[in-house]
Amino acid sequence: MATFSTNEFRPGLKVMLDGEPCSILENEFVKPGKGQAFNRVKLRNLNSGRVWERTFKSGESLEGADVMDRDMQYLYTDGEFWHFMEPDTFEQFQADAKAVGDSHLWLKEQDECVVTLYNGSPLSVTPPNFVELEIVETDPGLKGDTAQGGNKPAKLSTGAVVKVPLFISQGEVIRVDTRSGEYQNRVSK
C-alpha cells in the first residue's frame, strides 16, 4: 500500500491510523511563527465510526488503507448476514450486522447502495440517499387532511419507523431521506 505524507492528506483519503482504517475529514496546517509545523487532522475511524483528532508533525506519513467504495445491489438477508452483489461481475459479498449497522433500516431488495470494502470485506454499507418503502403499519388516514400540519408514526416494510403526515395510509409507498430519516413525499403506485 502507498504511504501518504501530511501534505497529501485530503478529505476522503483512506489511511491506517493505530491499526484502524480511517477516512480523513479535515486537515489543518498549523505553524507557530518560527517553529515546528504541525498538521491537525480530523479522521473518522471506519470501524467504530468515531471521529478522531490527531496532531502530526508536518511531513510525517501514514500508510494508505485498502478501503474502497463500490456500488452494489442489495440482494437479501438470511437473518445473520446481508448479501450484496456487484452488478458488473456478479461477485457477491456478505456483510455482518456490525458492517450494516443502522443501514438495514433502509435496505430494500434490488436497491443500489455503496458497500465500503476493507481488505476485500464489507466494512460499512451506505444506503441510497432516497429510498421508496411501503408502509406496513400506521393509524388510519384522515381523508382530505392534506394541508394541516401534524404527523404520526408509520412503520415501513424494513422495520424503520418514520413520521408521516396524517393523510398517509397503510399500504402506501413513501419516499424517505435516509440521511435524516425524514419523510419526503408520497409515491403514486
Binding site: 491510523l17 493505530d18 498549523v30 505553524k31 507557530p32 517553529g35 515546528q36 504541525f38 491537525r40 478522531w52 483528532e53 490527531r54 496532531t55 502530526f56 508533525k57
Partner: peptide
C-alpha cells in the same frame, strides 16, 4: 490533545502548546 507517538525536544512541545 491526541498526539499519537509524537516525540521531540522541548521546543517541539513549546511550539505545539503555543499553536494548539
Amino acid at each position: 490533545l491526541d498526539v499519537g507517538d509524537l516525540a521531540g525536544n522541548r521546543d517541539l512541545w513549546l511550539d505545539l502548546l503555543m499553536s494548539h
